[in-house]
Simulated scan of single mutants.
Amino acid sequence: MRRFTILLAAHNRLELLKLAVASAVAEAGDQDEVLVIDDGSGDDTRDWLAAEAAREPKLRVVHQPNQGVAAARANGVEAAEGEFVFILDSDDQVEAGALDAVAAAFAAHPETDLLYGDNLHVFADGTAHRRSYKQFPSNRAFLRATFLSPRVPFKHSGTSFRRATALELGNYDASMPIKIDVDFFLKFMHRERVLRHLDRPLVRFQVHGEMMSRNRVKGIRAWMTLIDRYGPRNPFGRAFYKLCRWGSERLKGVYEVVRRR
Results as ranks from 00 to 15, higher is better:
Asp181Ile: 05
Glu249Leu: 07
Val94Pro: 05
Asp44Cys: 08
Phe84His: 13
Arg245Trp: 12
Ala80Trp: 02
Asn75Leu: 10
Val102Ser: 02
Leu115Trp: 00
Thr127Phe: 11
Arg261Ala: 08
Ser213Arg: 08
Met1Gln: 11
Phe188Cys: 06
Ser23Thr: 04
Thr45Phe: 04
Glu95Gln: 14
Asp47Leu: 06
Arg261Asn: 12
Phe205Thr: 08
Met212Lys: 13
Ala128Arg: 12
Leu14Met: 09
Phe154Pro: 02
Gln67Met: 12
Ser132Gln: 15
Phe4Leu: 08
Phe161Arg: 01
Phe185His: 01
Ser175Pro: 00
Asp43Leu: 07
Gln206Glu: 13
Tyr230Phe: 15
Met212Glu: 13
Arg196Gln: 13
Glu33Gly: 04
Val36Thr: 00
Met176Pro: 02
Arg55Ser: 12
Pro137Cys: 07
Ile6Gly: 00
Asp39Ser: 06
Pro110Thr: 07
Arg250Glu: 11
Glu95His: 08
Gly29Ile: 10
Glu33Lys: 10
Arg46Thr: 14
Phe84Cys: 01
Ser157Asn: 09
Leu114Phe: 03
Asp173Gln: 01
Arg46Trp: 06
Met212Pro: 07
Leu167Gln: 15
Gly97Ile: 08
Phe142Trp: 07
Lys18Asp: 09
Leu17Ser: 03
Leu14Gln: 07
Leu114Gln: 01
Arg233Lys: 15
Gly42Asn: 10
Ser90Asn: 12
Val102Phe: 03
Ala101Val: 08
Gly76Tyr: 04
His121Arg: 13
Phe147Ile: 09
Glu95Ala: 14
